[in-house]
Structures are given as C-alpha cells and as structure tokens.
Design a protein around this nucleic acid. Structure first.
Lengths: 215, 215, 215, 215
DNA sequence: CATGAATGAGTGTTCATTCAT
DNA sequence: CATGAATGAACACTCATTCAT
C-alpha cells in the first residue's frame, strides 16, 4: 500500500529509467546519428551503466525504434485538433498550419527524428513503414481535407490535391533536412530565416490556389 | 603491332577498372549507405579483390568522392553549359532547368548520392564539406544567376534571390528523399508522377516571379 | 562487509590485469620486437582477449610506453634516489652506480627494452622521443651530476663531462646489445661475466678521472 | 662471340642488375629499417619494376641477407692486412686501429649494416650466426692478437684479454648505434664529435694497459 | 535489479608475392 | 627476361552484447 501512495525514490527512479534512457537516446541519435552513437554514451547520459540499458532494451536497434515510436506520433494528432477548431478562411488555415508545424515541430529537437528516420529507413524497414502509416499518411490526409474543404468553399480553384499537398510538405521537409544535415547548411552569408521561407512559400501556394490559370 | 591497335586484355581491363568500381560503388552506396558498405563488397561487385580497389582509390572516402564527381558534379556542370547556350525566355529556361535536372539527375540512381550525403553528413564531415563545395554551391550559383538575369531582363520581379533559389531546389530534394527513403515513399494509391509535380512546381514559381505582388 | 575486506574475484582480477598484460607485453616485445608483436598475442599470453587489452591500454603504442615506464623509468629514478643518499666517495658512488644499473636493469629482461627501442626507433619516432625524454636524458643528467659533484669535491680532475658520461654508458649499452642480439652474443668459449667487465670498466674510468694527465 | 668481347648495353645492364638492387636495398634498409622498406621502393630506386626484384631475389628476406653478406665482410679483412704491416708501438697500433675503424667503417653508410643486423638478428637467426662468424670473431681475434703481442713485447701489462678486447669494441658499437638510432642521438647541445670520443677512449685504454695497477 | 569487466566479430588498409602479358 | 596488375593474408582497433558478481 505504502508503495501506491508514496513510492520510495528508488522505485520511482526505476520506473522512470526507460524514459530517461529514451530521452538521452533521442538527444544523442539526433545529434550524432544512429551508427555514431555508442550505447555506452546513451547509458552514461541517462546516468546508468551500460548493462542497464540492455536490461530495458534488448538491442541498440530496439532502443532506436522505441525512441522513434515515442517521439513521432504526438505532433500530428495535435495538428488535427486545431484544424477542426479553426475559425477563419481556408487560406488562412493553410498558412497557419504551415507556420505552426514549423514552430511546434520543425524548429524543435523532435524534428531531428524525422531526419533520422528518413536517413536510416533502409536499415530499419519496419520503422519506415511505421512512420509512413503513423505520420506521413495522417498528415497528408489532414492536408488534403483542408484543401478539399477549401475547394468546396469555393476558395481554392483548379488544383491537383495530391500535388498540392506535396507542395505544402516539401519545403517543411527541406528545412528539416537543412537543419539537421551539415551537407545542406549552405554556409553562404545570407542564410534566410526558416520562418520567412515558410511564410513566403505559404503565400506562393495560396496565391496559386486562389487563381484559376484557365481563366 | 597489334598492341598499337588493340591493347592486351590486361591493359583493356585496367582502363575499365575504375569505371566498373565506380559503378559498383554507386549501387552499393545508394543501396546501403556509405558506412554500411564494406570496401570488400564494392570490390567483389566489380569482380576484383579488395586489394585492387585500393590500387585505384586510395581510400573508401576517396572512392566515394570519385563516385560523387562522376555522378553528381558532372550533371550540374552540364546544366551550367546548357544555361549558357539556352535560347528562350528566362521563364522557359527555369522550367527547362528544373525538368532537366529531374530527368537527368533526380530520376536516376545517382540521386541516391544526394540522399546519402544528407543522411550521413554528420558522421563524415569531410564528405559534407566536399558536397557543399562541389555540388551545392555551384548549383545554387547557377540558379541564382538565372534568376538575376531574369530580373535584369525585366522578366522576373521583386523576389528574394536566396529564398527563391531554395524554393526551386526544395521540391527536387523532397522528391529525391522520397525516392530513396522508404519512410517517405507514400505508398498511397495515387502516386503522382514526379515529372508532373516538378512541372507544376515550376509553373507555380514562374507565375510567382512574373507577378509583382506590390502592384 | 566481506566486500570491504576482500574484493570479489572479478574485482581482484581487474586490479591485476594491467600488471599481467604489462608482463606479457614485456616478454613478447623483448622477444620479438615491437612491430612483430601482435596485440592479440600479448592479450593471449596474459590470458585475456584482444578487446580486454584495449580496455586497459588505449593503443599498442601506449602499452609499450607503459612497459617502458614500468621497467625502465623506474630503475632510473630509483638510481637517482640512491645517489642522493649515498655515503662514500664519488669514485665509489660511480662504481656502485654502474654495477647496480647492471644488476638491477642491464642483467634483467627489462634491458631488452633498450635494445628494442634502439632497434626500432626509426620506425616509431614517437617511441624514440619518449625514450629520449623519459630515460636517456634523466640517466645522463644523473650521471653528469655525479661527475660534476666529484669535480667540485676535488676528487675527479680534468675531464669532458659529456664524453665521460658517454664512456660510462657505452659499455652498459654494449653489454645490453650483446645480451639481446644473437649477432653479438660472442659464442666464443671464454664468455666473460658482464659484472666483471663492468667492474673493470668502472675501474678504468675512475682511474682515468682521478689522474690529471696534464700533470 | 661478339657478346664475349663486346656485350650489348642491355646485357651489361642485366649483369649489373643484382648489384644495383643490392645497392638500392642497402641505402633503403639502412635508412628506414627492414620492415619499413617496401620492396617496390627498392626496385624503383634501382630503376626496375617490382617484378624484376623478385626475379633476382626470391623474397625480401633473401634480399636483405644478400645485402648483408655483400657489405659486411670486406672491412675486417682490410684491417687484418694493416695490422700485419704496421710499423710502430703496439699502443700506437691500437689507437690507429680504433680511429681507422671509425673512419673507414663506423662513420660510413656501411656501418648501418651492423646496426641493422644487430637490430634484426632475432628475425634472421642465420644472419646473426653469419655475422658472428664472419665479422665479430675475426675482429675479436685480430684485436686479441694485437693485445697479446703488446704483452709479449712488454708494452701492455696485466690485463684480461677478453675484457680488454670488448672494451675496445664497446665504444665503437655505441657510436654506431648512436649514429643510426634516433633513440640515442642525444639532442643535447653538446653533441661531441665521434672521433674525439674514440680518441679519448683509445687513450683511456692504452693508459690502463700501460700501467700495472698492482705496482 | 544493476554493474562493468570481458568478449570477439567486424573492417579499412598495406604490401610481399604471383603471373598473364 | 621484364612488367605491373592483381591478389589476399595480416593487423590494430571498436563496440554491441553478455554474464559473473
């Protein structure tokens, strides 16, 4: 009973172990990549010994999968909620969505997970499928529904839903990859702010959608 | 005499070795990543022994650089040539460039190299720098010069060069990542053709550039 | 409690590992040279696996340095201590030093290290420098200080410090090389005792130092 | 017939090949040691291809042995001749011998061979025996005979022949090792001239021999 | 449960040696 | 005879994983 009401510190720690390991692993994986992160580092960062890590996760690969599963699903479902409650034009909603995604996901550490999965997909095919189903597809569906609703409302005209959804996502992904890959971090002096880039892209798309080229 | 006209088998082999190794390396690197590809595998795939590989390339890293030079740098510089010789409006040139890049690079196996570098840049900083200098910067410069020339010709109006160049590249990169990462390969039924997506995006951008929003 | 008084087997092992590895390494290095000794052999001789060796010593070179420190640097610094505490004439001290160095270093397995370094210095410049700094220079300085003090005390006359120090060291080194190179191990019947040779040489030198040739 | 009287250049070259290879090998082995010298380097230095080297010497080890055999026997026999013809006191002869050995052997490239053999003796036991028998023993015998003759002539008094012979050789060997091992090349400012060191040592020994300590 | 000492498979690179030309 | 392209054994070092304590 006492342990239901007031668990000892030790016990509470124990229950938190997996979480602490997951968090340490997230940081390290995002920072250095999967292969370059040593199991011992993760353990050390979580304040436990190497052996303990393997007590909770049967292998480094499983640890990685757990990190992904833990960190990847949340942002999408939050987006869906806001869409449902949004007051305003569909154009505004679309812009808002793009900027908020960047602010709440793209610009955070968590976006490193996306980069990671995309990078390591061939090593973890099941993870790729998982990401596909749990993230990409829901996000695409959310996006498509916004577009379709905009069309129904007469706001958006003549567009290919699939293409346009991709056009919305492409710059986000581009920025995320830029942020996490030194190969893209164009060292040129005029590094533009991601927010501005997103905003401009959002404008570009909305303008394109609002205008019927066949007219 | 015959050896003046036709090299001996050994000799003929020698001249083909680098190419065979490069091709094998391209396949393997794209398939499995840089780190996960063993030097011996490359040699085996090219039909030679491990030692022979190092006869032609001083290290795995140099082999990789050679692969990049052969498969990535070339298309970019070819692009530059065509830009110089292009007859037509700047809008047409920009569209042409985007579609040709896709056709000649994005849609080929070689584009896997871009995915790979972006993925592994963190673990191999030298390669990232090399890619930056040999690929990203020349490509960006080419793009910017097209945009600037379009502005000088009065064809393109009011745009941020850097942002716009990124906007041109972003969808290309998005498609390349999609193509090479199963995590993004939207298995949904209505898989759109990349060419169409590029074409539409090109239109979107050209329309945006031709139209002065402040008017 | 018992673990306060007596460490577990594992623990006890751990404390002995470095010593066991050092001993195995000394044997092998002296026997086969640095380059020709494989890390795995050392581990095997110490009864552990290759990996364990690198758990205690970060590289083969560091292992070697540790062997030198343990087996060569120590005797030299012990010599320094005794010099400081010696009661007797400087002539006696010099003789004592030479004989003790032979007894405590030259005649032991450890002297093979000197032979080894001299032999392989060219191939491993780092080791040569290390030996220079940690062994040769301290030993020369010790020797020179004995000679200078003997001069100040009026016991030794008219001598070139550098030459004389070398003259003291030369026969030691000669014996060490003889002992460890079968090319020099004069298999002739009348193999003289090294101790006697050293003793005689010490006499020779002391006599030379005590006598002023210009008189 | 014509090839007996006037061999073509080619032919003459051919006959010189082994010698040129031997010479190149000598330089390189002395300079970089046995292991660090690559067979290809030797071939290149001799102006032939890798394959040709193995046409004349079945292996790198045999090449090394040939180099030693070729370069090591001459100096000793020359010394013997001069001893037989020397006019002067035995003390003078002894000094002369030491200085001449240094001048004609110790100070030349050829002395690198001695260093090499001593260093690599354990890898080439038969070479060590060869060196023992062809160099060390003859040299020791020559030396001993000089000493014994000096005794018979009443010039040298009360000495242990074996020890004294070693005392004569020791500084030579010390200097040779110093010259060829960076581990002994005491970087201290006052690097004494080898000739002076030898001269002083010769004096020391002669003095010791001329003086009967029991008197 | 937790530890950390021990393991050993795995890999880039070198170089003596071979052999087809 | 001479060449140099090709070979493959050898070796230091890393790190995920195990298991005795």
């Amino acid at each position: 009973m006492s342990n239901l009401l007031a668990p000892q510190k030790r016990e509470r720690r124990k229950q938190h172990r997996p979480g602490e390991l997951l968090e340490a692993a997230l940081d390290l994986f995002v920072d250095k990549g999967f292969a370059a992160t040593r199991a011992e580092e993760v353990a050390a960062k979580a304040g436990v010994s190497k052996g303990t890590l393997f007590l909770y996760f049967p292998s480094k690969e499983e640890l990685f999968k757990a990190v992904v599963r833990e960190n990847v699903v949340k942002p999408v479902s939050e987006g869906a909620l806001e869409v449902a409650n949004f007051k305003g034009s569909h154009a505004q909603l679309l812009k808002y969505l793009m900027l908020e995604w960047w602010r709440r996901y793209g610009s955070t550490k968590a976006s490193g997970i996306s980069k990671l999965i995309i990078s390591e997909a061939h090593t973890f095919p099941d993870l790729a499928t998982f990401y596909q189903e749990e993230v990409i597809e829901p996000a695409m569906n959310l996006l498509k529904s916004v577009l379709e609703n905009g069309r129904k409302a007469g706001e958006f005209k003549k567009f290919n839903t699939e293409h346009t959804a991709l056009a919305v996502i492409a710059p986000m992904l581009f920025l995320i990859m830029s942020k996490h890959s030194s190969a893209l971090c164009h060292s040129g002096a005029s590094q533009p702010k991601p927010e501005d880039f997103i905003a401009q892209h959002a404008d570009l798309i909305v303008r394109g959608l609002s205008f019927d080229p066949s007219n």
